[in-house]
């Protein structure tokens, strides 16, 4: 649940999601679930020319399994806190 909690702290902020088909969408993070499915608002598609079908879409749901990366701004992340949380999670018996 580490990354689920992590993404929850990012709700309301702008992120850029790169999908495995190279489509890149930036937008405001609205919600996330335990599969790391993502909902974005006010979306903008990078390379709009290549993806004309996205023109009329303003908000979208992205299935977690098709995400390659989520690119974030540095100041949204408390790296010390994140490392501590990771160590704690790693210690938990599976």
């Amino acid at each position: 649940m580490l990354f689920y909690s992590f993404f929850n702290t990012l709700i309301g902020h702008s992120v850029t999601v790169e999908l495995k088909n190279d489509l890149t969408i930036s937008g405001k993070l609205v919600s996330v679930d335990q599969f790391l499915n993502i909902k974005l608002n006010d979306i903008k598609v990078l390379d709009q020319q290549k993806y004309p079908h996205m023109d009329s879409v303003k908000s979208c749901f992205i299935r977690g399994s098709v995400v390659r990366y989520v690119s974030l701004s540095k100041d949204l992340v408390d790296t010390a806190l994140l490392q501590d949380a990771t160590r704690r999670e790693a210690q938990q018996p599976k």
Partner: peptide, 11 residues
């Protein structure tokens, strides 16, 4: 280059 990047494990 990316400042901060979440990488999905399946890749």
């Amino acid at each position: 280059a990316h400042d901060m990047l979440f990488v999905r494990g399946d890749g």
